[in-house]
Design a binder for these strands. Structure first.
Lengths: 223, 223, 223, 223
DNA sequence: CATGAATGAGCGTTCATTCAT
DNA sequence: CATGAATGAACGCTCATTCAT
C-alpha cells in the first residue's frame, strides 16, 4: 500500500501540494528518524537519502520539526480513521471486535515498524508538542474505543468487571513494540537467522497475534 | 538508595576515581538523557545541570559517548548481579521465583524510570555498540534465567509446555515500559491527578505487579 | 600573476568548484599559515582575514587539514610542471639549463615567500601525510632532474665527477630559504632599511642568483 | 654531553633551581617541540613525556612560552660562548679559524638536531619576542665574528674582496638545516638505509664539512 | 614541593536554515 | 520551482593555566 493514495482526504494537512516527491521525502525521513532519532538524523542526511536538494526540505515542509509533524499527521490520521471505523461497526460481537482490533494494531505495527520506533522515542523525548498532541489523541482514541467495546462486553456478561483499560492497551502496545525492538534477539534466540525478512515478519505477526489474543482472553475472561 | 555504595565492587569500571561528583554528574546526565535523548542533551546542559564546569565531563568520562557508557555500566552491573542472585536461590518454588522476578523487575523500572527511558531509546537508535552490547547481555541474562526457571516448572508439571520466552519477557518489559511512558495519560485517564508523585508510583507498582502476575499465571498455566 | 588562471588543468584537485572565493581563501590562509604556522592560525583567523563566514572554510575545503592540502596541491602542481618542462628542453646547454633552474627556483621562492615558509615548517613538523607526500614528490622531481642534467654535463666533460646532488640542492634551497627567513636581518646588516619591499626583493633575487650560480659553478667545475 | 654541567655559569637564567628534573623536562620539551612545533606540542604531552605532573611545567617554568624561552636560553648561551671563544683565539690563521667555525657549527647542528629544527620554525612563526631576540643575537654574533675573520683574511690578501657575509652564513646554516630536514630523503637517495643512526650522522657530518669548506674556499678565494 | 581537580577560553566542525538567482 | 552558496549558532572537546591541599 503506497502512501499517496489518500491525497484527497488529507489535503488539509499542509498548504504545500502533497506531490510524489513530498511523500518520497517523508518516507526517507521516516527511515532515518527511526534509525538515528530526530536529533541524530540531519536534514542533509534526509535530503541525500531522498535524492533531493537540501533546501527542498525547508521548501516542502518549512523546517525539520514540521517535517516530523507532517510525518505524524500523515501516518496518524489513517490510523484514527481505521480505529473509528471499527467502533462504528456494530454487526459483530465484542470478542470479534477486540480480536479485529488486535489484528489491525499488530498488522500496523509490523507494517510500519520504522514509524512505531519513532513514535516510541518521541513519547520519551517529549519535545515537539504537536507530535505529542497527535500521539495523545491516538492513544485516547484507542482507550475510548476499548472502553466502549469492553463496556458492551461487560453488559453482555462476556467480559469480566474491573478491567484496567490502560494496562490492557499498554500490554498490547508494549509487547508489540518490544517485539520490533528485539527482533534481532528474537531471531537469534529462536534460530530464525536464515529466514528472509518479510517471511520472518509474518511469523512474528502470527505469534504475536496468538499471544496477545490469549492474554486478552485471559484478562477479559471470555470463552 | 544512593549510587555510590558499590564503589568497591565496581572499581574496575573506570580509571577515573568514582567520586561523589562522578556519580552526581552521572545522575544529572541520566535525567537529561531521559528527557531529551542522547543527541538532544548537550554536554553543556549536563554540566550546567550538575553544576560543574563543562570540561569536567571530559575530565571524568573522556567523552559524551563514554559518559553514556559509564551510565550503562554503573546501572547494569547491579541489575545483572541481582538477576544472577535470584537464579541461584533454589530454596523456593518456581512460581515464587517467577513472582520475585516480576516484583524485582517492576521495582527496578519504577525506581529507575529515567534510565529505562534511555535504555528504550538506545535500543531503537542503535549507535553506541558498547551500550548495545550491555543491553544485549542483560536481555540474554533475563532470557536465560527465565528459561531455566520455566524448564524447572515444566519438569514439575506446574507450567505449561511450549512457552515463548521472548514473548513473555517482551510482555513484561513492554507493559512496564509503556506504563512509565504513559504515566501522565494513566494519571489523567484514571483521575489520579492530585496524588503526589511517589504515592502514584506506588499505586502504579502495585497495579502493574498484579497485572503482570496475572498474565504470567495465565500464560504459564499454574494454579 | 593570479592564482586562478589554471582552472582547466587543475580541475581535478577538488570536487568543489574552484571559484574566485576559493582562491581568495587559499591566499589568505597561505599568509596566515606562513605567519603563525598551521596550528597557530585558527580557522576563525583565516575566515576573518578572507572576509568570509567561518563555516565557508569547511564548505569549500572540508576541513582545516584539507585546506592546507589544497594549498599544497595548487602550488605544487604548477611547480612540478615547470620543472618537468625544463627537463624536456634539449635545445640548450647543460650549463644554461642549470642556470635557468636556479633562476626559476629563486624567482619562485621570492615570489611565493609565504608558501616556502609554510613548506619549511611542514617539513619539520611532519604531521600531514598528504602534504609530506607532495613535498617529497617535488623534491624527488628536482633531484631527478638535476641528476639527468648533471649526467649530461659530465658526459660532455663540462661538469666534474662525483657530485653529491642532495648536498647541491640543499645548498640551493637552504640558502634561498635562509634568505627569506633572515630578510629583516639582511636588510639591517646591509643598510637597506629604506628601500620599498618589492625593490628589496629584486635586490635579494639578483644577489642570490649571482651567489648560487657562483657556488654551482665552483662545485660543478664548469668554465 | 649532558645538559646540566653548566649549572654554575648559567644560574642567572631562571629563579627556579635548575635541577636534574628541570633539564629533563627541557630535553623532553625540546624533542616534542621539534616533532610537533610549539603549538602542536601540548603541555600535557611534555609532562607525560617527561614523566612529571602536568602542573610541574608551570611550576618550574611559569608557562609554556617561558619553557620555550628557557630552552633557548640554555642552548644559546653555550653557543655564543663558543663563538666568542673562537674569535679571541689569534694564534691560528684566518683559514683555520674559518674551518674551525664550520666544524663547530656543523657538529652543533648534527648534535642538536631537534633544537635546530625548533629554531628554524621559530624564525618563521615569529611570535615569541624573547626567543626571536635570542636568535637575532646569535645570528649577529656569527655575522660579526665572520666579519672580523674575513676582514683579517682580506687584510692578509688571503680572502677575496666584496664578500656578502649574510649570503655566506645563509649558505652554511641553510645547507646544514636542509640536510637535517631532508635526512630521510638523503638516506633513501644515496642508499644508506641500513646504517645505524649515529653512524649515518657521522657520514652526514663528514660530507657536510667537506662540502661547506669547499664552498667557503671558492667564495673566499683562498688557496 | 608536588599533585589531582578544576576552570574559562577557544578550538575545528556541523547544524538547520535562508538567500540570491 | 529548484538550487548552490552562505550564515550564525551551537556542537563536543581540548587547551594552558591555576587552585586547594
Amino acid at each position: 500500500m503506497t502512501f499517496s493514495n489518500n491525497c484527497l482526504t488529507l489535503r488539509f494537512i499542509s498548504k504545500m501540494r502533497r506531490t510524489e516527491k513530498y511523500f518520497h521525502i517523508l518516507e526517507k525521513a521516516e527511515d532515518l528518524f527511526a534509525e538515528r532519532g530526530f536529533d541524530g538524523a540531519t536534514v542533509r542526511d534526509i535530503a541525500d537519502s531522498a535524492g533531493v536538494n537540501l533546501a527542498m526540505i525547508s521548501y516542502y515542509f518549512g523546517s525539520k520539526e514540521k517535517l516530523m509533524e507532517s510525518l505524524f499527521k500523515e501516518r496518524m490520521i489513517l490510523m484514527k480513521l481505521k480505529v473509528e471505523a471499527l467502533i462504528e461497526n456494530k454487526t459483530i460481537t465484542p470478542v470479534q471486535r477486540i480480536e479485529i482490533l488486535i489484528d489491525n494494531y499488530i498488522e500496523k505495527v509490523i507494517d510500519k515498524q520504522p514509524f512505531y520506533k519513532i513514535m516510541l522515542c518521541e513519547q520519551v523525548i517529549n519535545k515537539n508538542t504537536i507530535v505529542l498532541k497527535l500521539i495523545k489523541e491516538l492513544k485516547l482514541s484507542y482507550a475510548r474505543m476499548l472502553s466502549v467495546l469492553i463496556s458492551e462486553g461487560q453488559k453482555q456478561k462476556i467480559f469480566k468487571k474491573n478491567i484496567d483499560i490502560m494496562l490492557l492497551t499498554n500490554t498490547m502496545s508494549g509487547t508489540a513494540t518490544q517485539l520490533i525492538i528485539n527482533k534481532e534477539y528474537y531471531k537469534e534466540f529462536n534460530n530464525y537467522t536464515k529466514i528472509p525478512e518479510t517471511e520472518f515478519d509474518n511469523i512474528l505477526m502470527t505469534k504475536l497475534r496468538a499471544h496477545l489474543k490469549f492474554v486478552f482472553k485471559a484478562i477479559l475472561g471470555y470463552e
